[in-house]
């Protein structure tokens, strides 16, 4: 059972690790690279707690094999705040109390950012369907959706300003 050497880019920086067979990207991030922001809620692609961006595409990192990220670009929740400044989505989640236990939050933030990158002006229904892969058991989604819609409005304003 030999391990595979993997070189990839995580949040803009080069990262290297040894992947054992069957290791997922989620395992690599959490256990090899010490990035525990992405969470494992199910390990089967059903909860979205492990959401990260892979080459600009939203993926469940529990479904990606670690060697697959060789030479590719991974972005995680740890890279969302820039220069000590929270991303507007992070700020709006706090202002709207869009988290209770917060376990789903990293995944929801990554997924929400992917939504707003792709669609800066989503309807509530579009936001709800986009985020349907991210389970939250605490909030009933109400405040999460409000936070996302509010962040979208703010980002649109920033863009036109």
């Amino acid at each position: 059972m030999s391990k595979t050497h993997v070189t990839t880019t995580v949040n803009g920086d080069t990262a290297e690790f040894l992947a054992s067979p069957g290791m997922t990207l989620l395992d690599a991030l959490r256990d090899e690279l010490g990035l525990t922001g992405a969470k494992e809620g199910c390990g089967s692609g059903d909860c979205g707690a492990c959401s990260v961006m892979l080459d600009g595409r939203l993926v469940c990192s529990c479904l990606v094999l670690a060697p697959e990220v060789e030479g590719r670009r991974v972005e995680t929740i740890e890279g969302m705040a820039q220069g000590g400044q929270l991303h507007p989505l992070q700020q709006k989640f706090l202002e709207h109390a869009a988290l209770q236990c917060g376990f789903c939050t990293p995944g929801l933030l990554v997924a929400s950012k992917a939504l707003l990158d792709a669609n800066p002006d989503p309807t509530e229904t579009e936001a709800r369907y986009w985020l349907a892969g991210n389970l939250c058991r605490c909030t009933g989604y109400d405040k999460i959706i409000r936070a996302v819609m509010d962040a979208a409005a703010e980002l649109r304003q920033e863009r036109t300003a």
Partner: peptide, 19 residues
């Protein structure tokens, strides 16, 4: 007010059981 543990929870820093 914004919750005192909020920044840790929106940045992935908060450490849960498996972290």
């Amino acid at each position: 007010p914004i919750r005192p543990d909020g920044a840790d929870k929106v940045t992935g820093r908060a450490a849960y059981g498996a972290d």
